[in-house]
Design a protein around this nucleic acid. Structure first.
Length: 603
RNA sequence: GCCCCCGUAGCUCAACGGACAGAGCAGCAGCCUUCUAAGCUGUUGGUUGUGGGUUCGAAUCCCGCCGGGGGCGCCA
């Protein structure tokens, strides 16, 4: 927040250490815990340890020496600008800010910068985030939701941190699963499709499940059943072959059914407030990827076993000279010369870097595919694609259900649309109970925002790489550490400001009065936001923002409960607190936005 | 067999290598003539799976083990 002062202090510390021959590795600033006042702190353990290694001060324990240094530095720093007092405790140097000045600067900065408060300086790097990769001809389930909300939040964070960000969606619109649906639809269901967008999408999923059953060998199969199944299997293969050859009938059938899925997907993305910049389709990189395979064969990286009925493979470990198996052998073309998921990812990487000129490419895809991406990136490297090192797989734990893994085939999936509908119903019920005076015209809109807020937060408040079990009652809880709790803080702030009926920008607030600990804590939280954004962007972790938003909301709720604003005892305090409330509302709004959660004006 | 992820309070999860490991839920006790009680305050609950190592300092980094999940030649 106060970088200039902080740097000046840092320079003074360095100067002191240099004069006294104390090696100082780095100055790391931390907020002072056990608050009640605020400030920054740093420790001298590293310096004391480094000094001990040089042989100086033999026999003096490091913590003791660290405390000595802290005390010495403290005397040097007395009277530094912006610092009310300094103390040396247990090897730490704590610098307490002067409260009135700090409070004014924090609040003013937020109100001046508004929606841009916390944003990072523009970085000259273009980042692509790929997420939202559901298969077409299926329905969007809660696992796809985690992927999409994670990717969207990450994209918003990176963008806000200053990176030029491109959001990419990569629906799986071709592959054996898609062909399976096409085959069954064409054979058994053509012309029977439901009219509702979502029902139609879900209907395709039902067809997929049925078709898969018809095609899966059964234990007690009769010879007739076996013959029937093999006949179906042959038809499915034939359909894939025709698609691959560009057969007009199959292609038309495919485009039409694909569009049903895409219509549903676009509708869902809109519900989630997600705006994709670039749509890639697997089918579009199908042909280009075959060219890469040819090149890999020609250059001896891939081995073509098709003449003996085998596929085209890359023996990655062998090419890298590894003795232990790590990347293994990857199949990059089926024996019938059709491409695989991996094949297409090779071409897609090329498109991203060469056609869209990105500097970095992030793939938000669940952890189970980590081998796939390691293989893809290594093959690209072997191929000589130098940006391979700029590809990053952001894995996350998959979502399962209390009864086990989701399985479309067994009909055991939780569809996003069902959760969405349920969320809205629950919020409407809660509104009826808690805020019966809310106008009817507002209710649905608020219910959507709050319901989606609860769901989004339940996903984003768990670290990416952790698996999660989806339980409706937990995901749609409105109490405690949840999205609605944060939204409610925003609403309460908004309510005060609405009733204040004053314009704030007139005078700059004065905090020249004894601040309560609640005000101090709230200002402390507000001032953390820019660093939080930076950390989240560096680590690719929306969780950092999610945790912060909750802490900020907690600080606000406590403040709200304990500190009168409209009824403050003096006009100065009233104006200062109104400004603080406005600042808190702004930062709550900014952090919710990074989580792709909307902030309702009332709830 | 090899590779990846996870293991922290009864449950679900946090914790830039730093000060007393924190929240929510569940439990218990309080707070609505005052800005929205979707809230606030207090309280119960821990040998961070385990054994070593590195470090002034380890839940965090390294190695081994145990337990759970996932992946491993023509699914995506």
């Amino acid at each position: 927040m106060f970088e200039r002062e902080q740097q000046a202090i840092e320079a003074q510390i360095r100067a002191y250490c240099a004069e006294n021959d104390i090696p100082l590795p780095e100055v790391k600033w931390l907020p002072i815990p056990f608050s009640g006042e605020w400030g920054i702190s740093t420790s001298f353990f590293a310096a004391a340890a480094a000094e001990a290694r040089t042989g100086k001060n033999k026999g003096v324990p490091v913590p003791v020496r660290a405390q000595e240094i802290a005390e010495a530095v403290k005397t040097v720093l007395s009277g530094a600008p912006g610092i009310a007092r300094a103390e040396a405790v247990k090897g730490y140097l704590n610098l307490y800010f002067s409260t009135a000045e700090t409070a004014r600067r924090v609040v003013e900065t937020v109100l001046t910068q508004g929606t841009r408060f916390g944003a990072g300086a523009p970085k000259s790097e273009r980042v692509m985030v790929e997420y939202a990769q559901p298969n077409t001809h299926h329905s969007f389930h809660i696992g796809h939701y985690r992927n999409t909300i994670l990717g969207e939040s990450l994209a918003r964070i990176l963008e806000f941190a200053g990176f030029e960000t491109i959001r990419a969606s990569y629906p799986g619109d071709i592959g054996l699963g898609v062909i399976t649906v096409l085959w069954a639809y064409d054979k058994f269901y053509k012309g029977q499709e439901p009219s509702d967008v979502h029902e139609r999408g879900q209907w395709l999923l039902k067809i997929y499940v049925e078709a898969t059953n018809l095609l899966t060998p059964k234990d007690d199969e009769t010879p007739e059943e076996k013959a029937q199944r093999e006949q179906y299997e042959a038809e499915r293969r034939e359909m894939y072959r025709k698609w691959d050859a560009g057969d007009p009938y199959v292609r038309q059938l495919w485009l039409e059914t694909r569009e049903w899925s895409l219509i549903e997907l676009r509708d869902i993305l809109e519900m989630m407030d997600v705006a994709i910049d670039v749509w890639f389709f697997e089918s579009e990189v199908d042909e280009p990827s075959k060219k890469i395979v040819e090149e890999l064969i020609a250059r001896g990286i891939a081995e073509d076993e098709r003449s003996t009925g085998g596929p085209v493979i890359v023996k990655i470990d062998e090419k890298l000279g590894l003795t232990k198996e790590k990347y293994r052998v990857a199949v990059i073309l089926r024996s019938d010369s059709t491409t695989l998921y991996l094949t297409k990812d090779l071409a897609l990487a090329q498109v991203k870097f060469e056609q869209y000129g990105v500097d970095r490419s992030i793939y938000v895809v669940d952890n189970r595919q980590s081998l796939h991406f390691q293989q893809a990136f290594k093959i690209l490297e072997l191929w000589g694609f130098k940006q391979a090192e700029k590809c990053f797989h952001l894995g996350y734990g998959f979502v399962s259900l209390p009864e086990g893994a989701m399985s479309a085939r067994r009909g055991r999936v939780v569809l996003f649309k069902d959760v969405y509908d349920e969320a809205i119903q629950r919020v409407l019920a809660t509104i009826a109970e808690k805020n019966p005076t809310m106008p009817e015209s507002e209710r649905l809109g608020v219910a959507k925002m709050v319901g989606m807020g609860a769901l989004a937060y339940s996903m984003l408040s768990v670290d990416n790489n952790k698996d999660m079990v989806f339980v409706m009652d937990e995901a749609l809880s409105f109490d405690g550490r949840t999205g609605p709790y944060i939204q409610n803080a925003y609403v309460r702030a908004n309510s005060i400001l609405r009733k204040a009926n004053t314009t704030l920008q007139a005078a700059s607030p004065s905090f020249e009065y004894p601040l309560t600990t609640h005000e101090i804590e709230l200002i402390e939280q507000i001032s953390r936001f820019p660093n939080v954004v930076q950390q989240a962007a560096d680590e690719y972790r929306p969780l950092v923002v999610a945790a912060y938003a909750y802490d900020l909301a907690t600080a606000f709720h406590s403040f709200y409960h304990a500190v009168p604003v409209l009824q403050a005892e003096s006009e100065t305090m009233r104006m200062a607190r109104l400004a603080l409330v406005a600042a808190a509302r702004q930062v709550l709004s900014n952090s919710l936005r990074l989580l792709a959660i909307r902030a309702p004006e009332i709830m």
